[in-house]
Amino acid sequence: MSYADIAAKGPKQSPEDARAPAQVEVEHSDESVHSLIDVDSPHISSVPSDYESQSVKTDTQAERIEREEEIKETAKDLKHKAAAKAQSAKDKARRNADNPVVISNAVGLALVGGILGIGAYRKYVRGELTGKVVAAWAGVVGLFAVGDYYVSQYFFKRNPPK
C-alpha cells in the first residue's frame, strides 16, 4: 500500500482545515510603560567616572576591609597577651626551678603521662582499650592528683614558692 492509497482512504479535509493555525499577534499598547523605572528617582545612582581607579568600590567591600582590620588588631592583641603569659610562666618556672615540690610534680607528671600513654597505646593495639579501661585510669589519675595536692600543700608550707 502506498502513501497515495492511504491518503485517498483517509478523512477528507478542506484546505482551510488542513492548514496550520494562525499565528498569535502581539497587541501593542502604551499601558506597559507605567512599570518602567523612573531614572530620576533616588534609588538609582550613577557611577563616578573614576570608579575603576578606586581601591574600594562598594560599601560592602569597605565594611569587609574594616572588619578585617579589626580582626588583625584583635589577633595582634591576643598574640601580645599570649606572649606576656608565656613570659610570666617562664619567669615563674625560673623562680621555682630549685623548689623540690615543683620538680617532683613535673617529674611525676611526665612519668605518669608516659606510663599511661604507653599503656593506652598497647591496649589500643591489642583492641582492649574500652571506655571502662579509660574511666578506671582517669580515676587513678584523679586519686594521684588528690594525693599530690595534699603532699604539695604540706611541702609548700615548709618551703613556700618565691
Rank of each mutant, 00 (worst) to 15 (best):
S2N: 15
R67D: 12
H28S: 08
I44R: 06
K132V: 06
F144I: 11
P15Y: 07
A7M: 12
D77G: 01
Y121M: 12
K12A: 11
K72E: 12
L78T: 02
R94P: 00
P100I: 06
D91S: 08
D77S: 07
S29P: 07
I115V: 14
T130Y: 05
D38E: 05
S35P: 00
I118V: 15
Q23R: 15
G117F: 05
K81S: 09
D98P: 00
V47G: 01
H80D: 10
Y154M: 10
F156Y: 04
E63V: 14
K72W: 06
V134H: 11
A145L: 03
A8D: 12
K157C: 01
D50P: 06
I118Y: 14
E25D: 09
V24P: 10
Y149S: 12
S35M: 03
I6D: 13
D148P: 00
A89T: 02
R158T: 01
Q23Y: 12
R95K: 15
N99Q: 03
A22W: 04
E70N: 10
I44W: 04
Q153L: 10
R158V: 01
Y124T: 07
A75C: 11
P15M: 13
E27T: 06
R64Y: 03
V26S: 03
L129E: 09
D77M: 08
G119Q: 08
E70W: 04
A86D: 10
N96L: 09
A86V: 05
A110G: 05
W137S: 13
E66K: 14
Y154R: 05
R67S: 13
L129T: 08
S14T: 15
F155W: 15
S88E: 04
S32E: 08
V107H: 11
K92C: 03
V39K: 15
V141H: 02
H34S: 15
G131P: 00
A75M: 13
G108L: 07
L116H: 13
G139Y: 11
L36P: 01
V112Q: 12
K92I: 06
G127V: 10
P21L: 05
A18F: 06
K90Q: 09
I115N: 08
E16S: 13
R126Q: 15
S2I: 03
K79L: 10
L78G: 04
A83F: 02
L129Y: 13
G147V: 01
K162Q: 10
Q23V: 11
V26C: 01
F156M: 01
L111W: 10
K57A: 02
G114Q: 13
K9C: 05
G117T: 07
V151N: 06
N99I: 03
A135G: 13
E128L: 05
A120N: 14
K57N: 01
D91C: 01
V133Q: 14
A75F: 10
P15Q: 06
V141Q: 09
N159C: 03
Q54C: 07
E27N: 03
R158H: 00
D50I: 02
P21R: 13
S53M: 02
H80G: 08
A7F: 03
L109D: 11
Y121G: 10
S88K: 10
S32K: 14
T58R: 01
V56G: 00
E66Q: 08
G114E: 07
K76Y: 10
